[in-house]
Simulated scan of single mutants.
Amino acid sequence: MTAAARLAALDALPAQELCTHAEQALTALVDVMNQETTLLRAGHMRQAGQLTPDKTRLAQDYVTFARAIQRQSARLAAEAPALVQRLRAGHESLATQMAENLRVLATAKSVTEDVLTDVARMVGQQNRAKTYGTAGTVASDGASAAKGIAINRAL
């Protein structure tokens, strides 16, 4: 089935069915994001990372339905105004959950960077020669502090 045929099939769905599919995708996405946020808060980064494929798939599904609803907004407003209103409320819930999820992700990233920077600094201090310089003080070389440790900032 081509993309155009899939879009036409979505657009041809009865109002009730289209709104129900969108609401189910929305609810599932909010649930997965809530699970991820809870796991990140608890420090379970690996388990949270395992939710990424589901979250991505559900987000794609939701966007597909949301675009179909946008294309059919006039028809849906006439045929199922209560369902459209419920979807709007659900979308606001998604926006709130996304904001919280992004805040927790940013905090986790910051904490991880701080920990890795501290570890790099400690490793660099252990590997530094402790000799006296010409002024009678222990020489310090800040450039060697992070040898052998890289920080991936792509989180």
Rank of each mutant, 00 (worst) to 15 (best):
I69H: 02
E92T: 10
Q47Y: 09
V123A: 05
Q70G: 15
Y62L: 09
E92P: 05
D54L: 02
Y62K: 00
A82N: 11
L40S: 06
C19A: 07
Q85Y: 09
Q125D: 07
L76G: 01
A80D: 12
T20M: 12
D114W: 13
D141T: 05
T37D: 04
K55I: 00
Q47E: 15
A78T: 12
R153Q: 09
L155K: 11
Q16L: 10
T52S: 00
A48P: 00
A78I: 04
L10G: 01
N152D: 06
A9N: 05
Q24L: 10
K109Q: 05
T134D: 12
T52W: 00
Q70I: 15
R71V: 11
L105I: 08
S110F: 01
D114I: 07
T107F: 01
T137N: 11
Q126F: 07
T56E: 00
A59F: 06
K109G: 05
G90H: 09
L51G: 02
E17H: 13
D11F: 01
L105H: 05
D118M: 04
A78N: 13
Q60Y: 00
H44G: 09
R6I: 13
R71C: 04
A145S: 10
Q35F: 09
A9Q: 09
V115R: 08
T52F: 00
A146P: 08
V84Q: 07
T137E: 10
R103F: 02
Q125W: 06
D141V: 06
V84R: 11
Y62C: 08
N152W: 01
H44A: 15
A68E: 02
L18N: 00
G142P: 15
G148K: 00
I69T: 02
M98Q: 14
T134W: 10
D118A: 12
G142L: 12
A8P: 00
R41Y: 08
R46Q: 12
A135P: 11
L116Y: 05
Q126M: 14
T96F: 10
A150N: 11
D11A: 08
T134N: 13
D61Y: 00
R121E: 09
Q16I: 03
A12N: 06
A146F: 05
L94W: 02
D114T: 14
A154H: 05
Q72N: 06
A8W: 03
T131V: 13
A139T: 12
S140D: 13
S140H: 15
